[in-house]
Each structure stands twice: as structure tokens, then as C-alpha cells.
Design a binder for these strands. Structure first.
Length: 882
RNA sequence: GCCCGCCUGGCGGAAUGGCAGACGCAGCGGACUUAAAAUCCGCAGCCCCUAGGGCGUGGGGGUUCGAGUCCCCCGGCGGGCACCA
């Protein structure tokens, strides 16, 4: 060793870690040994752990968001495996959806061909990442083996009364004659035709998720490993409201309508009523429109508003006075005008509201616009009832009811009870609980989705496809040159005999919302080749998913639908669980700077060169480039970085290490070239630390000296065991960036120890043994994050060892080495740091205070004033109050 | 508009209510090198009359012996809003 050190020029540069050769080699070795394959039905010898990341949509290439998502999951999977769990970690493809149809229309590629080619590309890219996946479980939701089973599930749900057929509104493009997704509606116009979009009513299939609203809400309490904010968002989405249903009698009937029912959460403010408003889609609005052309025109305008809640709520509040009046339930002889208003949602409550402008902001804005009265009936504490008036803001807090007859003097809560009591006593209404959650409309007028397995027969009505006729497969010969749903204008596909009466009938040509596909894939992964939707022994053993990982953008819909599906599958005898995901982690997005050329066009990062003075120019032309905001990577802004190119240049381990080290995984991370380069240097440094130490290390298996005196060996052993404890804790709490920092600290300690070993005049066996322990620990702790490098280092440290890092148990920290003999205490005077003292861990308080007060700086801060109070937080701080 | 988050040095971030800035990126200085790269060592929140002190976790207030952390208000940025996935 000394020879080498003395004559560096005589030997070649230290061997660098050749990731390009090593990574595929270790991937092949894991596969050869079947390290990550698990059986559908485990034998129970180990506890199970199911790690699942949200499966990708096969857009064609993986993006950094995927790299981040799957790296996070892989760390968990590898760590849990080391902790002795049998880990299932599958991967598949969320393969139905609009982009495939867009590709078909724009480029003439068949959606199936486009999709499966994309899957092949992306599978190859994922494999290069070295993920510990059980690829034998892979499937795509567009595989007929998958969606056929989904059709079977649908038939079970239908039989169990969990499916309904109802009318609902869709965005209709009158030029393209097509239903548009909300994202295809831009500023109220169709994205391709530019035509003003209209709302159109269609008969559609719905899953009765509202039947489970109370359960879906209550069970949130049991999800103790879900982020609070996701549970809050779901609770708000389900939206339980207590209130009252109130019947308002029309002064004169319209068509056959004699009254309007309103749901309100504020029956206490009924005396502050100034108008009643119904949604444009309300039956009363239709009845008025039948005899009032201006009303019909207003309703038609509302129909041009789009169906999204954001569009409705952000639109200017507008209304139409129908001229009708309703009687007030409590005020004898009083009547109020009936309006049609664009901000009233037909889907919520009864589609009608009573307006109390003084105590509801939207009502107030509406009343101000149309000159309707504003009568306060809730008095803020301390306000004078004679002078209290509403200005710009409605008063929505608690207070004392006034101007309200029998409710005067009550608080808001008591007044609500009193109002409901009176409504019930007089037969004009009742207390009621409503939910914001609506039934889940699953019909889509599209080709590239799972066909809904029912048949429309003129004689028998709607007839489910018998199970023995499943799957209802998509036809392959479809024509995308015409607008609309290719299934609908396919020449033969939809024409089938009725299963019941055998007369000519028509297949349903709608396909399922792709959220249906992703609502049960976690269950299918347990027995992916079963000829039933799920194999009982498999799902009972593996479910629930122990750790689910994905983007926060799915916090509501996907997760709620999946929770509903688990319940529906339980009700139909497929599952025994109700909650599919015991643990949830939501990751942040991957962001990057954006760049614009002088002409305003977006540039890819590789087209931009950063100058040392901080400016940026375009590669080749040297024209100036504007460096824009850091934002989510998107194709439209071209601020994307291709994971494949990063792996080519730096290797998968470097990409994984950087993505983990940059920041906490639930926050957005910024991808930077400098950051990747830094990660790359660290992987090389680890390799160097091991190769440089090899000549001094004792043989494999040499135990570290237990009784070493305080010195470099003991210090290194402490650092090693502190690192084990810290990294373990960080991994358990998803603080992967902290785990990285602790590993780096251990690497720094190793480097220092190596320098000491090199500098020593005579070899120190204790230090050498401690070095082996430290390097082996470093290797194993970094295994979940940089798995290929860890295997490489392990094979250098333990030539002839049969087990891979992927097969080793997790290192254990020795508690004796975690204890320090002394602690450093901060000494504060009045909360301000004035000194630090070093005391034995078992020092008594009197000694500590005496030592603290003796500090020169502390004396100066005390300035001779008497000490009123002494606070000692063991191991942390002493605070003296003077 | 409504619901939910986030905000700490030049940058990413760390910190059971207890020494703010661990670890890293960028930077600066040094060693090695003919030179560069790579590597190694060191410095580093801001300000000050530099012993020492003052100010600092988006802004303002509060609770506490003590607040990045808890509470209230405000600002900025982001996610979701039911047919993007």
C-alpha cells in the first residue's frame, strides 16, 4: 500500500466506477436470481409488504416525474426487503385514454399500435433505472385480459345495484359533433374547431358512489398513514352539510309546478331572504322558458358556459328575473322574486337556493348587481342592531339573530334548530343532510377505452352482456377520419342479437372513464393472470397496498374512486378490505428553468449555454436567451430533461441519487445540471473510498474491536452506528434527502479515517477493522438508493460473498455506540445564546447551572441582575431569566 | 371563485417548542499538476468602531423563560375543482 501511495505515477489512475458496464450487469444478475419476484399466494414465512407507485400513462417516453416516483418507491421496496419483508412491487400501464385517439386522428396511427409501441419504449427505459420490480406481473389496462375482467366487475356492480343510468350534461362541440373533455375546452371554445361549446344532456352510466358517501368520509379517520391534507381535501370533496330542505310555495303555479324546494345550510337566516334562485337546468327554469323567450335566451347563454365548476364559479354572476314570486315560510303575506341564476349548481342540493345577501358573499354580489334588498339578521357580537349594516362583505360569522321573529336573540346554532323545528311543525320543510359528492359518471363517447358491456334492445331495454360472452373486445378496424365515436359509426360492431330475446339489438358504444381502469389495478396486480378479476387467496394475502406513492394531483378523484371500488368489490364478494391504500405518500413535481429565444419561442435546456456572467445564449448562434421561471417540466415550455440522456451520461444510480438528495420528496424539486454533476461525483467518491481502502482492510468477516479506547477507531465506529440509526429513521419517515445527508456524513468520516490510516507511521488494526465496518455499512445503507453501485462495492469488499446487497438484511445500530459521554449545552440568558458548555451526560443540575453561570459571557449578559428562574432542558439548553 | 398546500443564506435544504443554516450545489482561497481536468484541504447568513455585538426562517401581530416550529391577519407561489392522466 505504501508503495502505491509513494509512487502514484507508477500506477494508473484509480479505477473509476464504470456504470455503463456495471448497471446492466447487476440488473441481469438480479433478474437471474429472481430477487424481486414474489408468488401470488405467499407462504406466510415472512410478513408481506406491498409497495405500489401510480402506474404511468404510456405517453411514449418516461419523464423525470416518473423517475422520481419510481425511485421513491424503489427505495421503499429495497429497504423493506432488507427489513425482512416479502415485498411485492409491480408495474403496469394506464393505457387507455385520449392521447392515443389524438395520435390516431392527427397522425393516422392506430391507438393500439401507438400505445403498445410506447409501452415497449417506456418499459426499456424503466428497466435501465434498476428498479426492483416484479415484471412478471406487468399488464396494460388496454389488454383485453384486463378490461374483460373489468367488464365482469361492472356486471357484478350492476347486479348489486351499484350502477345507475341517468342524464347528465357534457361539453358539446357543435362543429366537430363531439363530446369534449374539460381540457379540450379553451375559453369556452372547442380546442380544434374553435366553436363555442354548448352543454348537452346525454343518458349516461353512473357508479353510485354517493351511496358510500358517509362511509368514505368516516373511514378517512382510519387512514393514519395518509397525509392530513389529502384527507382534508377528500372530506371537503365529499362535503357533508347539515341544513334544511325548505319548500317555497309559488304564488301561482307554472305548468304543473306549485312549489320550489331549496336546500340551505343557513335556515337561521330565512328572515333575511331577499330572493330565490334556481339553476338554469332546473325544471322551473324550463317551465318558465316555455312561455318566456327572454328566459329561454338566458338559459341558452348559461349553456354556453361549460360544465366545469371552476368555469361556473368564476363567471360573472348573472341572473334573470322570472317575474314569479314565492311565499315566505315564516312571514305571513311576504313574497319574494324568483330568479334564474348562473351560479346556482343543479348538481348540488336541490338546484335552487334562497338568497340571503347579508350573510352569504355570492348572494350579496348578486343582490348588489341587481338592486335586491340586503337585510341583516345576524348581529355580530357588540354591534348595535339599530346601525349595523352590510358593506362589501357579507357577515358569515356567529352572532345573535335579530329581525327574525321567533328566532330573535338566539345564537346561529340554536336558531338553525329552531328554524328546522318550525319548518317541520308547519310541514314546510325538514332538517336534512346533503353531500357535495355526486355520482360518478363513467360513460365516455370514445373508442380507446373499455367497452361498457350492455346491449340496448328495443324490446327488452337495457340488457347486460352475459358473462360467458365476455370480453366485449374493441374492434380493430376503426375509422378516425370522421368526428365522433368510431365505435358508434363502425359498420358491424354494435349490431348484435339481444341476449334475452335474440332480436336485433345494439351494443352500448360508450366506453369507461379511464379512472375506472385505475380504480382496481392495485388488486389485479396480486393475481394478474387470473381468469377472474381477482383471485381470493392472492388479494386476501397482499392487500391492502402498504405504501402507495404518486402525485398530489390525484389527491381527490383517483384515490376516492379507488376507495369506492374497494367497497364495491367487497360488496360483490371480490375483496375483504375496504381501504385499498394503508399508506399514501404524495410526491412533488419535477421542475426546471424555462428558456426563450429572442423571437419568443421556447428552447430545450440542451439548446442553451450558460455563460459565467450569468447570462445565457443559444448554442451555435450565440443569440441571447431569456432565462424564465422555474416551473413544472412540460413539453409545451420545452423545459424537459430526458431521463434516457441522463442515464446515458451519468448512469441510473446518479439520477436516482440526485433525485433523492435534492429536497424532501413531497416538495417540488428543481432539476439542475449542477446537481446531477454533484451526484455523479459522489458516486465516484464512494467507489474511490472503497478502492483506496482495500489494501489496508482486514479480511472480510473481521469483527471491529469492541473495547477500543477513545481514538480514531472508536470515533469512526460511533459515526458508523450513528449513521445506521439516522439513515434508518430518515428512511422510515420518507426523509430521503436527510438519509442522503447522513450517508454523506459517514462518507466524510470514512475519508478522514482513511487519511489518518495513511498518515500513521505504524498500522492501526483497530482503525482498519473499523474502516471495514464503516465501508461495508456505507455500502449497505446506500443500497436502496444507488443499488448498482452498492452491489459493485460489496463485490469489492466481500469477494466470494454469495449474497448480494439486494439479499442482505439491513444493518443494526449498536446502542452502546450511540451514547456519547458528554453533551454540549447551549447557555441562554433571556433566550439569547451567550455561551456553550460541555458537560458529562450524567451531570446534575446544580453543577450545570454553576458551570453555566460561571461563563464570562454569561456573567456579562446577566450584568449583576438577580436570576429569577433557571431552566434546564437536559441535553439541550440552559436558559437563565434575570 | 371555492378547497388544499408551500415560503429558511447566492441556490436546494436541515432543525421531538430548546445552539437556525446539518448535508450538498454554486463561490472563494490553498495543495497536487508544466498546465488543465479530476481529486484533496480550508473559508463562507447579513451588518457593525471585529474583544464582542446587532439583525436574521415571505410581511405584521400574539402565546411562551424560549417560536422556523403553535395561534391570528396579510402577501406571493403552486395543486385540485368531477370528461387530462
Amino acid at each position: 500500500m505504501n508503495d502505491t501511495a509513494a509512487t502514484p505515477s507508477s500506477s494508473a489512475a484509480p479505477p473509476r466506477h464504470d456504470f455503463a458496464a456495471a448497471e446492466p450487469r447487476w440488473q441481469a444478475e438480479w433478474e437471474r436470481r429472481g430477487c424481486f419476484a414474489v408468488p401470488d399466494v405467499p407462504d406466510g414465512s415472512k410478513p408481506k409488504y406491498y409497495v405500489l407507485e401510480m402506474f404511468p400513462y404510456p405517453s411514449g417516453k418516461i419523464h423525470m416525474g416518473h423517475v422520481r416516483n419510481y425511485t421513491l418507491g424503489d427505495v421503499v421496496a429495497r429497504y423493506k426487503r432488507a427489513r425482512g419483508y416479502l415485498v411485492m412491487h409491480p408495474m403496469g400501464w394506464d393505457a387507455f385514454g385520449l392521447p392515443a385517439e389524438n395520435a390516431a386522428r392527427e397522425r393516422g396511427i392506430h391507438p393500439a399500435k401507438w400505445t403498445y409501441e410506447n409501452i415497449a419504449n417506456m418499459r426499456a427505459e424503466l428497466k435501465r433505472m434498476g428498479l426492483s420490480l416484479d415484471w412478471s406481473r406487468e399488464f396494460a389496462t388496454c389488454d383485453v385480459e384486463y378490461y374483460g375482467q373489468q367488464q365482469s366487475l361492472f356486471l357484478d356492480f350492476l347486479a348489486a345495484g351499484l350502477v345507475e343510468r341517468k342524464e347528465s350534461w357534457v361539453n358539446w362541440d357543435p362543429v366537430d359533433q363531439t363530446v369534449l373533455a374539460n381540457e379540450q375546452v379553451i375559453d369556452g371554445r372547442g380546442w380544434r374547431s374553435g366553436a363555442l361549446v354548448e352543454k348537452k344532456k346525454l343518458s349516461q352510466w353512473f357508479f353510485s358512489i354517493t351511496k358510500y358517501a358517509p362511509e368514505l368520509l368516516d373511514a378517512l379517520k382510519t387512514l393514519d398513514r395518509w397525509p392530513e391534507r389529502v384527507k382534508t381535501m377528500q372530506a371537503n370533496w365529499i362535503g357533508r352539510s347539515e341544513g334544511a330542505r325548505v319548500r317555497f310555495r309559488l304564488a301561482e303555479p307554472v305548468a304543473d309546478l306549485r312549489e320550489v324546494e331549496v336546500f340551505t345550510t343557513r335556515p337561521d337566516t330565512l328572515f333575511g331572504m331577499s330572493f330565490l334562485a334556481v339553476a338554469a337546468e332546473h325544471p322551473l327554469a324550463a317551465a318558465v322558458a316555455a312561455r318566456d323567450a327572454k328566459a329561454a335566451e338566458f338559459i341558452a347563454e348559461c349553456r354556453r358556459m361549460g360544465t366545469s365548476e371552476a368555469a361556473i364559479e368564476q363567471a360573472e354572476k348573472r341572473g334573470y328575473d322570472t317575474g314569479l314570486r314565492v311565499a315566505h315560510p315564516f312571514i305571513e303575506g311576504a313574497s319574494f322574486p324568483v330568479w334564474i341564476a348562473n351560479f346556482v349548481l343543479m348538481e348540488y342540493g336541490t338546484g335552487a337556493i334562497f338568497g340571503c345577501p347579508a350573510h352569504d358573499q355570492r348572494d350579496l354580489e348578486f343582490a348588489r348587481k341587481y338592486g335586491l334588498p340586503v337585510r341583516p339578521v345576524v348581529l355580530p357580537p357588540g354591534a348595535d342592531p339599530k346601525t349595523f349594516a352590510i358593506g362589501e362583505d357579507a357577515y358569515v360569522e356567529d352572532g345573535t339573530i335579530f329581525n327574525s321573529g321567533f328566532m330573535d336573540g338566539l345564537g346561529v346554532a340554536a336558531a338553525k334548530r329552531a328554524a328546522i323545528e318550525r319548518l317541520e311543525a308547519t310541514g314546510q320543510g325538514k332538517g336534512e343532510v346533503t353531500w357535495r359528492l355526486r355520482d360518478w359518471g363513467v360513460s365516455r363517447q370514445r373508442y380507446w377505452g373499455c367497452p361498457i358491456p350492455v346491449i340496448h334492445c328495443d324490446a327488452c331495454g337495457i340488457v347486460p352482456v352475459p358473462k360467458h360472452q365476455l370480453p366485449v373486445a374493441l374492434p380493430e378496424d376503426v375509422d378516425f377520419s370522421k368526428p365522433g365515436n368510431p365505435l358508434d359509426h363502425h359498420p358491424t360492431w354494435k349490431h348484435v342479437p339481444c341476449p334475452r330475446c335474440a332480436r336485433p339489438a345494439r351494443r352500448e358504444t360508450d366506453t369507461f372513464d379511464t379512472f375506472v381502469d385505475s380504480s382496481w389495478y392495485y388488486a389485479r396486480f396480486c393475481s394478474p393472470r387470473a381468469e377472474v378479476p381477482v383471485m381470493h387467496a392472492a388479494v386476501d394475502a397482499w392487500l391492502p397496498v402498504d405504501q402507495y406513492i404518486g402525485g398530489i394531483e390525484h389527491a381527490i378523484l383517483h384515490l376516492l374512486y379507488s376507495r369506492f371500488f374497494a367497497r364495491a368489490m367487497k360488496a360483490t364478494g371480490h375483496l375483504k378490505i375496504e381501504e385499498p391504500f394503508a399508506g399514501l405518500f404524495t410526491q412533488g413535481m419535477v421542475t426546471h428553468e424555462s428558456y426563450r429565444a429572442a423571437d419568443g419561442s421556447w428552447l430545450y435546456p440542451e439548446e442553451v449555454e450558460k455563460r459565467p456572467d450569468g447570462t445565457a445564449v443559444r448554442v451555435g448562434t450565440n443569440e441571447p436567451v431569456t432565462v424564465g421561471r422555474v416551473e413544472a417540466m412540460s413539453k409545451s415550455k420545452r423545459n424537459t430533461v430526458d431521463p434516457g440522456a441522463i442515464i446515458d451520461r451519468y448512469g441510473a444510480d446518479t439520477a436516482r441519487w440526485f433525485i433523492l438528495s435534492d429536497n424532501p420528496p413531497d416538495r417540488d424539486m428543481e432539476w439542475t445540471e449542477a446537481g446531477v454533476a454533484g451526484a455523479y461525483r459522489f458516486t465516484q467518491r464512494l467507489h474511490r473510498l472503497v478502492t483506496a481502502a482495500l489494501p489496508v482492510l482486514p479480511p472480510p468477516g473481521t469483527p471491529p474491536a469492541q473495547d477500543a479506547a477513545n481514538g480514531p477507531a472508536k470515533a469512526l465506529r460511533r459515526a458508523t452506528h450513528r449513521a445506521i440509526a439516522a439513515v434508518t429513521e430518515a428512511l422510515e419517515s420518507f426523509a430521503f434527502n436527510v438519509a442522503v445527508a447522513r450517508i454523506r456524513e459517514l462518507a466524510n468520516a470514512v475519508a478522514e479515517a482513511e487519511a489518518q490510516a495513511q498518515a500513521a507511521t505504524s498500522p492501526d488494526p483497530a482503525l482498519a477493522a473499523a474502516l471495514r465496518e464503516a465501508l461495508e455499512t456505507l455500502t449497505r445503507l446506500s443500497g436502496p438508493m444507488v443499488p448498482h453501485l452498492a452491489e459493485e462495492l460489496w463485490s469489492l469488499l466481500r469477494p466470494g460473498e454469495t449474497r448480494l446487497v439486494a439479499e442482505l438484511p439491513w444493518p443494526e445500530a449498536d446502542p452502546a455506540l450511540l451514547q456519547a459521554e458528554t453533551v454540549t449545552l447551549a447557555v441562554q440568558v433571556l433566550g439569547k445564546l451567550r455561551a456553550t458548555i460541555e458537560v458529562p451526560v450524567d451531570a446534575d443540575e446544580a453543577t450545570i447551572f454553576a458551570l453555566a453561570e460561571a461563563q464570562e459571557n454569561v456573567q456579562r449578559a446577566i450584568g449583576g441582575k438577580p436570576i429569577r428562574k433557571r431552566i434546564h432542558v437536559p441535553g439541550r439548553v440552559v436558559n437563565l431569566v434575570v
